[in-house]
Amino acid sequence: MTATAPSLDAVIASVSRSKAVRARRRVVVISILAVLIMAVAAISLMIGNTVYSVTDVARVVLGQDVDGASFTVGRLRLPRMVLAIVVGLSFGIAGVTFQTMLRNPLASPDIIGISAGASAAAAFAIVVLGLSGTAVSVFAITAGLLVTLVIYVLSHQAGSAGTRLILIGIGIAAMLEAATQYVLSQAGQWELQAVLRWLTGSLNGASWEQTLPALIALLVLGPVLLSRRHDLDAMRLGEDAASALGVRIERTRLVVVIAAVGLIAFATAATGPIAFVAFLAGPIAARIVGPHGSLLVPAALVGALLVLSGDVVGQNVLNLRYPVGIVTGVLGAPYLVYLIIRTNRSGESL
């Protein structure tokens, strides 16, 4: 008997062994991502119009006065680097939250119209009302929440299906983009440049005042999302299974949606909608970490890495300076198409 069927102890041992392997993989991946982020962050502080040595940069970061470097690194590059990391983390974690909750990689905020709502509101605030700074952020955040509410209400009938929500989101996004286009057509030359930069997603002119609200939002809302990660994982199995596992679906969804939209909106308000970061971070993280366990932390790190390295590339590689949103857009677009091809081919229903 014991020869044909493995004993219970052996099964438990093998399960816990594979669990340990997975856990180790997660730790390794997360550490590598963190190291990469730090490396790119250091590079982003060092290179630019003037190249500074590691020691100069380190002294500036530690608060010492270095001729020239104090201004360039301390005032220009440091806030830019911090902002890149903060918005990258926010986009990554919020994007993967939506994708996990709706069980669809296409359900990221930049596809279902939430970013489009924030953009339209910000364009309106800048061009028509002549606002800037925090006031624009307030508009963007309110609009992001409103659009989410509208999409949710419209798709919520007889068990809101993810696919319907995505299609409705696409429709809403089309409408909001038309509104943005109208606002743009009314803009003067100066405002137009401001709005276009903003709409592409750019870290240009990053300052501490811009970074602070996004950072606070991340510190408050990030932990909220992390505390719900087990519920979110259960929801990947489907709503029935999740509620059988003791997840309160409606409440979890409400908390998670508000937190994720808040993150998206604050980050969008700071830098504009950086194309495809929220969408890409989740699938990339899933590929590296493997299908088990929560994706929130790896996706957040991938998001930060994408924004940081996109900005370094946009600033330094070509002789023209491109905003980060263009770099992520051009890299992300083919991946989006590839993802659709792969999903269709494997015959999964999206």
Binding site: L106, I170, G329, V330, A333, V337, N344, R345
Partner: peptide, 29 residues
């Protein structure tokens, strides 16, 4: 129209929306 079931409305609409988004970011770039 890749995969099972051919060109269903959903798959076509998603492929179109994704391609549009992709092309739009090249237009901006």
């Amino acid at each position: 129209s890749l995969g099972r079931g051919g060109a269903t409305p959903l798959k076509l609409a998603l492929a179109g929306a994704a391609t549009s988004a992709a092309l739009a970011s090249f237009v901006t770039a």
